[in-house]
Structures are given as structure tokens and as C-alpha cells.
């Protein structure tokens, strides 16, 4: 129960972060969405054995987090929460790909381990980028930005309503969970049968609520389209930021900066 509840508060926390007022928060949401998209494309397009060339992207995220006042501990917690998915994706690489790539003393590092690390790094970069996007923009503003960029409105409306009612749904689910926990005494695990009843009950309540919400919309003249207020405007600074970030990403994508730095430093020493 504690887990569900803390997940709920985390969601509100993310929304609180989005209410901040830093240069990053003030950028136009569309610019931030586009920048995030380019960032992700660059990161996922690297070859599967690449690690070092991706590191500057991590540095970029750290700088943005600093500018936007986003606590790293929060981000790390979220990353750990979803990391099992990435680990599952890459866990078999070390076994399948036994080709030796690197010799460290007596240890041989195979291509599998390198690509596994590469997957984890990509995962960390992309998920952090999205979390930072939401924490500096807010979910609703992102939806609005996507509508402006011609995402079909129906998706936007679905997302907006989902985001509005997820709080109500979690509340309702928590209530039912608490009611069950209070009457099940020593037995902590929920039997499958009880679980089925709870979920069924929640579904029925959700259907009822959906009907009432639809009624409320009809009462106010709903005719199938939701008109979302659009107050976005792109300033010169926004375009400058987009161009700057995109340029930086392409440089980081096509030049292996850490390697160049390494060569430069070793060149100085030699």
C-alpha cells in the first residue's frame, strides 16, 4: 500500500517541479519537445558498441538539471524504478555475444558486456531526458505543444483526460485497498479471488464515472471536439535555444569528443 501511495505523491511532486520558474521552465514547450526528440534520436542512433561518445549527452542533461533546479536524487529513484525493463532487454547480450573486444590484464571483456552497458546508458539518457522534459514543462503543456505540432487532437484529449482522472482513480483504488487491508488482519497477501473482485469493482466504478463525466460534458454543449486554449508563442530566444541544442547534439553525435579529448591529453603528455 505504501508503495502505491508514494507513487501517487511522486506524481504530484513532478507536477510541483513543473511549476518552477527558471530559464529552462520558461522555454516554449514545443521547443523542449523538439529538443528532447532530437536528443533521443541522436542517442539511439549510436552503434551498439559505443559507450564513450554518449557520455557528453549525459553531461548535457546534468547541466540542464542544474539550470532547472531538478533534484538528482528524485531522478535517480525514478530511473531505478524502471531500470528492470532495460536490464531485461540487455541481460542476455553477455551470453550470446562472446566476441572479445578488450583485454584488461587477464580479463577479457566481450562485446556482449559492452553492448549491455551501452543499452543501460542509452536507457538512462533517454528516460532522464523525458523525465526532465516533464519536470520542466508539465504534462498538460506538453500535450498542448503536441497539438500545436499537429498531433491528432483525439490523442491529446485522451492524454489530458487520463492525466486529470488518474489522480481520482488512484484515490479510489487506494480507498478500496485500505478497506480490504483493514479487514484482512494477519493475512497480508491478497488472494487472487479478492484481487479479481477489487479490480472488477474498480472497473465498474470507472465506467459509472465515465458516464457521469460524459453527462457533465453534454450538459455544457459538448459536440465531439474539445477546444483547448492555446497561448503558446515562440520567441527569438526559444529558436536560438533550439538551434544551439540541435547543433550541439549533432557535434556530439558525429565526433567522439571524449576520445578526442583523450588523444589531445595523451598527445600533450607524449
Amino acid at each position: 500500500m505504501a508503495k502505491i501511495e508514494s507513487a501517487f505523491f511522486d506524481l504530484s511532486y513532478l507536477e510541483n517541479l513543473a511549476g518552477g520558474n527558471t530559464p529552462i521552465h520558461r522555454l516554449d514547450p514545443r521547443i523542449k519537445v523538439l529538443t528532447t526528440a532530437i536528443f533521443m534520436l541522436c542517442v539511439v542512433s549510436f552503434d551498439k558498441y559505443i559507450i564513450s561518445a554518449m557520455l557528453p549527452f549525459g553531461l548535457f542533461l546534468v547541466v540542464i538539471m542544474g539550470l532547472a533546479n531538478i533534484p538528482a536524487s528524485y531522478l535517480v529513484k525514478k530511473l531505478l524504478l524502471v531500470s528492470p525493463f532495460a536490464i531485461m532487454v540487455g541481460i542476455f547480450n553477455p551470453f550470446l555475444d562472446q566476441q572479445p573486444l578488450l583485454q584488461l590484464g587477464t580479463y577479457t571483456i566481450t562485446g556482449g558486456w559492452i553492448s549491455f552497458l551501452s543499452i543501460l546508458l542509452r536507457f538512462t539518457l533517454t528516460v532522464s531526458a523525458v523525465l526532465i522534459l516533464i519536470a520542466t514543462t508539465g504534462f498538460n503543456a506538453i500535450c498542448m505543444a503536441m497539438v500545436k505540432m499537429h498531433m491528432p487532437k483525439i490523442f491529446a484529449v485522451q492524454l489530458l483526460i487520463l492525466y486529470r482522472y488518474i489522480f481520482v482513480l488512484i484515490d479510489e483504488g487506494l480507498c478500496m485497498h485500505r478497506a480490504r487491508a483493514l479487514r484482512s488482519f494477519q493475512r497480508r497477501a491478497m488472494s487472487l479471488k479478492t484481487f479479481a473482485h477489487l479490480v472488477g469493482q474498480l472497473l465498474l466504478r470507472t465506467l459509472d464515472r465515465a458516464q457521469r463525466i460524459h453527462l457533465a460534458m453534454l450538459c455544457r454543449g459538448f459536440d465531439g471536439t474539445i477546444r483547448i486554449r492555446q497561448i503558446l508563442c515562440i520567441k527569438a530566444a526559444d529558436l536560438f535555444a533550439l538551434a544551439g541544442c540541435a547543433g550541439l547534439f549533432f557535434i556530439m553525435r558525429y565526433y567522439d569528443l571524449p576520445e578526442m579529448l583523450g588523444r589531445f591529453v595523451t598527445g600533450l603528455i607524449a
Partner: peptide, 17 residues
């Protein structure tokens, strides 16, 4: 009231009608 307030902000909800 939760059934009646379905838009992301108060302003948009009041403007809906």
C-alpha cells in the same frame, strides 16, 4: 464535483461551455 471538472485547469473548465 470531480465528475464536473474534467479539464486540466480551472480556467479551461469554466471556458469549456
Amino acid at each position: 464535483s470531480d465528475d464536473q471538472l474534467f479539464m486540466p485547469t480551472v480556467y479551461e473548465d469554466v471556458a469549456f461551455g
